[in-house]
Write a protein that binds this DNA or RNA. Structure first.
Lengths: 196, 196
DNA sequence: GGCCGTCCGTCGGTTACCCGACAAACGGGC
DNA sequence: GCCCGTTTGTCGGGTAACCGACGGACGGCC
């Protein structure tokens, strides 16, 4: 499986890259369900067995390619050395909102791979947040470990994005971003302290 | 070394191809003497040691690439199932004449790799002729084995081409082709029988 | 002269990959 | 139902490629 480590053996990196590339091409040409493992490996000029050394099945490769695409999107908008601060968090939230909406379009577009998309994007999101938090170093106020914090934030952001994408009463991206940020930074404190 | 066999291991074929491709690119970009083995393998994304598993040195790769180019040129002009007959032989001779002239240009163009070019093209030529003769099957009139016949023809054709390329008194390609063909098919019989 | 950086060619140990074959699951046609 | 072709996922044995290090050759520079 090789763990996607970035300093892996040269051969491993190459095979992975070849598989991803040919998968992307076939995605455009005949779509996900139509393509077969052999199609992918033939085009990548790689033995079929090698596929299974890298991915458990076709779905894992799809998920990986979604993650890659999302990561690529983020790298284009965020500075390379981005950390956990209001400005970057705003950019992040906004990007997720737009990306999810563009995927979900109006109705749910894809047949059965829906939860796969969610896992992929949420996973990438959580990973990024975890990195940011780790770079700050300090523990969170209430002794919450960074992992938990990152995970919950990723769910929150993603959930908001999905809900917003489906909603008929579409408020603007900017407004929605504001709301999400407000919840992320302050939580429900306001409601608990003075609300009923 | 892997003997260039066409049904070799997939990995072998791929590495070879990557090396050749990156060699060709570097040939255009910085030339033969300027490029280093590491340049080639870096671009091919292949370990330096792998290079030596395929080619003894840079010169062997150059020779191989010349052979490939010449073979490609021939495949474009000759039918795939070409055999030993007057029409194909004429095409072959003509192609060699033109190719050699285009390489040798006016003066000798390349520094020290001159004999390398000769070996490459002659070798390819002899191989092709040997295939043709083998497909006919029958032995030659005087019991000359096909190998010898092919080898001598290749030297003859190539020598004529070189001489013609250098000659100031340039007769046309067609005329020269005729002459070469005449010698190839009839040898010096005419001179021996009635000439002095 | 001596020093240094680069390139060459080779080697031993490790690993990712290839190959062919296998059983199992699926779908389509009779 | 049964049969058949295709795809899937797995496995054992063999091998090409990787990696890192080595000694040596070459050229530039002080």
């Amino acid at each position: 499986m090789a763990t996607e480590g970035r300093e892996a053996d040269r051969r491993s990196r190459r095979s992975r890259e070849l598989l991803k590339r040919s998968f992307a091409e076939l995605m455009r040409e005949k779509g996900f369900t139509a393509m077969t493992i052999k199609d992918i490996t033939d085009r990548a000029d790689v033995h079929r067995g090698t596929f299974y050394a890298h991915f458990p099945d076709k779905f894992a490769l799809l998920e990986q390619s979604i993650r890659d695409k999302f990561r690529f999107l983020l790298e284009g908008r965020l500075p390379a050395d981005a950390g956990f601060n209001p400005e970057h968090l705003r950019l992040l939230v906004r990007t997720v909102l737009e990306h999810v909406r563009s995927l979900y379009g109006r109705c749910n577009p894809v047949d059965t791979v829906d939860p796969l998309f969610e896992r992929a994007i949420r996973g990438e999101l959580a990973g990024l947040l975890k990195d940011w938090l780790a770079r700050i170093g300090a523990e969170q106020p209430a002794g919450v470990p960074a992992d938990t914090m990152a995970l919950m934030m990723s769910w929150a952001i993603f959930g908001a994005a999905v809900e917003w994408s489906r909603g008929r009463d579409a408020i603007g991206v900017d407004d929605m971003t504001d709301r999400v940020l407000a919840v992320l930074t302050d939580g429900a404190r306001g409601l608990l302290s003075d609300g009923g």
